[in-house]
């Protein structure tokens, strides 16, 4: 565990707390893509199959359980508690276009051709692009609530912080995980446009608005 990894995980935790807080205080899931949130459930469930057969640490165990359960809880909030506030006509990105290619890539580029390894690889690729339906939805509406932008910023910063963590681990432990690194760089890259608007506008007190 190094500082980049720890801060990254804390940013990830923070993003989930911000999202749940937004939904509870506004009693709404407006502006949040159900499809992106559903993809995160798939990501966590397929990645953490190792909960059943490998023990890493208490930290690791608790975080995995938290990510699986909180992502399911968010789906529950969107699907039942705050269902009337979700507008499916804005959430129209086709998730098959993401899941299909990710699965195909996982079958081709993996470390071992076995079930859990392919599921792990699939989850890494899918996480990299899972934000697409959310970004697509914001592109369509052209705006986002400030609290939603804080959520997205924390979520983007999480994976961005994993990059210095991988560099640090290469020098201190000699470990390299090309699948996670390439996917992590792609994932962070997808946030660059968003980060630009977030840091230059939202953090200066302006509303998140995309040019028409």
């Amino acid at each position: 565990m190094n500082i980049f990894r720890l801060l990254g995980d804390l940013a990830h935790l923070a993003s989930i707390f911000i999202l749940v807080h937004k939904m509870h205080t506004t009693r709404s899931c407006r502006g949040i893509s159900f499809k992106t949130q559903a993809l995160y459930v798939v990501v966590f469930v397929t990645r953490y199959i190792d909960l059943f057969y490998s023990w890493i640490s208490l930290y690791n165990f608790v975080m995995k359980i938290f990510f699986i359960s909180s992502s399911c809880y968010i789906l529950y909030l969107m699907k039942y508690r705050f269902r009337p506030t979700h507008d499916p006509t804005l959430d129209t990105f086709k998730v098959e276009y993401l899941a299909g290619p990710c699965f195909a890539l996982a079958l081709i580029f993996n470390y071992h051709f076995d079930f859990t390894e392919i599921m792990w690889t699939f989850s890494i690729y899918l996480e990299a692009v899972a934000i697409f339906p959310q970004l697509f939805m914001m592109q369509r509406t052209g705006e986002a609530e400030t609290i939603t932008t804080h959520y997205l910023a924390a979520l983007g910063i999480y994976r961005a912080l994993y990059i210095p963590n991988w560099i640090y681990r290469y020098y201190t432990e000699g470990t390299v995980d090309p699948i996670a690194i390439v996917a992590g760089i792609v994932q962070t890259g997808l946030y660059l446009d968003f980060f630009y608007v977030y840091f230059t506008k939202v953090l200066q007190g302006q509303k998140f608005e995309l040019p028409a």
């Binding site: 190792d50 490998s54 690791n60 994993y162 000699g174 390299v176 995980d177």
Partner: peptide
Amino acid sequence: SANPPVKDEL
């Protein structure tokens, strides 16, 4: 050369 990846990340 690089060691194989350790799956201890989240």
